[in-house]
Amino acid sequence: MSEKDLQKTENTAAAERIRNVKTFIPRVDIYETKEAIFLIADMPGVDEKTVDIELEKNILTITGRVEDGIGKDYSLIFSEYEVGDYERSFTLSDEIDRDKINATVKQGVLRLELPKAEKVKPKKIAIKAA
């Protein structure tokens, strides 16, 4: 594992937040099954209330708001990572059935199911005996 892989990457392209926090790019896995495309994003510190998924035209944007949740009377004595919001956008192709997108958040991991539209699902064509 290289150094770059382990550090959070700052999202410098994202629009700046009104709150003075940094924005990071969540690391994602995307895999494909016959029925759907799954997108899994590591977003530690978010839950179902603080994550937003928006689909505008064909741009899917995931954002997560992270509150530090640390009391005022705590002082930081050693720091290796920074806490901030998450934002990342993906362009979807037409093969996704937009109405059936399903999202869950568990243990700081966002899981998006992007079902394929009926028309692009592989079909088995039966061969009739002549």
Partner: peptide
Amino acid sequence: YPAINIWEK
């Protein structure tokens, strides 16, 4: 890994 932050109170 993992990166850590240490707070004190």
